[in-house]
């Protein structure tokens, strides 16, 4: 897939904007695609849910504002409720099952449940839950290479935090792995 419209959503502090920015950086700066990143802003950012949209295109990006994305990553329940109905038919929904007990209602999209926080805790740092989810998204959409995300981390993190890159890479891989396993299960079904 080269063109992708993707929404990331969750509570403020879950690293939702970071996911979007890393994907933007990977697509635009590492892989040379056209890309736009649009954050939500204003009072809705103060303590409530935060979301951002990334549009990736081979040629040119049209609207940076998206109402029916190809993919959505929802990190909390309000985000699931808000964005599940918007995903385009045949699209992808990554659900952070660590914090969302509900199941998605749609059956015309691919839903992957990723226990992002549990995996992150297992890896020793709850804050990489967003990387687990991002790894899942990248694997499910194949919009960029996982390596490009790792490359982007080098730019996004200040040098004294580069020691965290291996941890982040592991988190991305764990997320991707869940999607691969999910794909095999689908085939079995």
């Amino acid at each position: 897939m080269t063109d992708l419209e993707c929404v990331f959503a969750g509570f403020g502090g879950q690293g939702v904007m970071m996911m979007g920015q890393l994907l933007t950086y990977a697509a635009g700066m590492v892989e040379g695609k056209k890309v736009s990143y649009m954050p939500s802003y204003g009072p809705e950012m103060r303590g409530g849910t935060a979301n951002c949209t990334v549009v990736i295109a081979a040629e040119s990006v049209g609207s940076p504002v998206v109402t029916d994305p190809d993919a959505a990553v929802v990190m909390n329940q309000p985000s699931l409720e808000k964005f599940e109905p918007t995903v385009r038919e045949g699209g992808v929904l990554i659900v952070n099952s660590s914090l969302i007990g509900l199941k998605a209602k749609r059956n015309d999209i691919r839903v992957v449940y990723v226990p992002a926080n549990e995996i992150a805790v297992e890896l020793g740092n709850d804050r990489v839950a967003n990387m687990v989810a991002l790894g899942a998204l990248v694997e499910a959409t194949e919009v960029v290479k996982l390596d490009s995300i790792v490359e982007s981390l080098k730019k996004a993190l200040p040098p004294h935090r580069h020691n965290l890159i291996p941890l982040n890479k592991t988190a991305l891989d764990r997320g991707a792995e869940i999607v691969r396993r999910h794909a095999k299960e689908q085939v079995k079904d």
Binding site: T24, M29, S36, P39, P64, V65
Partner: peptide, 8 residues
């Protein structure tokens, strides 16, 4: 939108 969005 123009003010808030990021692009390369």
């Amino acid at each position: 939108v123009l003010g808030q969005m990021m692009e390369p």
